[in-house]
Simulated assay, not measured.
Amino acid sequence: MDSKQKLLVIIGPTAVGKTNLSIEMAKRYNGEIISGDSMQIYRGMDIGTAKITTEEMQGIPHHLIDIKEPEENFSVAEFQQLVRAKINEIAGRGKLPIIVGGTGLYIQSVIYDYQFSDVPGDEVFRMELEERAKQIGNEALYTELQAVDPESAEQIHPNNVRRVIRALEIFHLTGKTMQDYQSKQQPDLLYDTALIGLTMDREMLYERINLRVDIMIEQGLLDEVKSLYQKGLREYQSIQAIGYKEIYDYLDGNVTWDTAVSQLKQNSRRYAKRQLTWFRNKMDVQWFDMTNVNDFAKKIAEISQYVEGKLQVKSNTY
């Protein structure tokens, strides 16, 4: 039987330090990095998504960044297909694929053997929902999904009616949310995976998130969002990202600048909390506490020891 492809996955909430760790791991294990972030795929959305810069990459190849225009949609199924192809491509070069990001559902869809086609269907119910969407509007249907399956609703844009209907259809047929249904499938890991999670003292993490927002604003976040706003981009999946929707509210004249910044920080903190909840409930993660960031070298050694034991790989001397 063929052995599984080795794969390193680094997850954790926003601002916890995934980028710095991933660069060190890529250097150490001759790796290439695949972005596991559902918003860094969009061109022209750099500051608000905390997209890694060329300088920060330190020569390490990065994939699935800047592959879509903001007006294009991006699905879990497409992400699954693209990342699995990249894993094969990177491995074919004799490199270690490293997925890094915070979008739990997307990463989960890649590393586990989920067969989306196995989820049952009900054509009559689906047609009824399609007709209701025309009559009561997309937002009302989305509100129904939020009531029965808030986790899926978090991942779906209200105007992506097809996905909203699909999630409602699964709940109608199984009495379970999309994630609950998939978890009952008990899928196997497709890869020989070292799944590392980074965590941190909650107050420290929130301070880092607030600071990150301040830095984004200094770097020109308002101008970045204005460029999208002035192009008339509005009802798109990309514009619903944290950091963009809050400033759209400001540009629309609905809130003051201070309120927009306060909401951006608050929404970012809430998102980090949801990320941690997701990872702890949905994935078998080996956690590492990054609270003592001043002792980064020691933390790197600790994580490396785990990776080498789990994947049976040796570090480079550099």
Rank of each mutant, 00 (worst) to 15 (best):
I156R: 00
H157K: 08
H157Q: 10
H157W: 13
H157Y: 14
H157S: 12
P158K: 13
P158M: 12
N159P: 03
N159E: 14
N159I: 07
N160P: 03
N160F: 06
V161M: 13
V161D: 05
V161C: 11
R162A: 10
R162Q: 08
R162M: 06
R163H: 12
R163W: 09
V164I: 05
V164P: 00
V164M: 07
V164Q: 01
V164F: 02
I165H: 00
I165Q: 00
I165E: 00
R166I: 04
R166Y: 14
R166T: 04
R166N: 15
A167G: 09
A167P: 02
A167I: 03
A167L: 13
A167E: 02
L168D: 01
L168A: 05
L168Y: 03
E169N: 10
E169D: 14
E169I: 05
E169T: 14
I170K: 00
I170W: 00
I170N: 02
I170T: 09
I170R: 02
I170C: 12
F171R: 01
F171I: 03
F171N: 02
F171Y: 08
H172N: 11
H172M: 09
L173F: 04
L173C: 11
L173R: 08
L173N: 03
L173Y: 01
T174A: 11
T174P: 05
T174N: 10
T174H: 06
T174F: 04
G175W: 12
G175A: 10
G175I: 08
G175E: 07
G175F: 14
G175M: 13
K176E: 14
K176Q: 15
K176C: 12
K176N: 13
T177R: 07
T177G: 06
T177W: 09
T177Y: 05
T177P: 03
M178D: 03
M178L: 13
M178G: 01
Q179R: 12
Q179E: 13
Q179V: 13
Q179Y: 07
Q179H: 14
D180R: 02
Y181R: 09
Y181G: 02
Y181Q: 09
Y181F: 15
Y181V: 12
Q182H: 09
Q182N: 15
S183P: 01
S183N: 07
S183T: 12
S183W: 03
S183M: 12
K184A: 10
K184E: 15
K184Y: 15
Q185L: 14
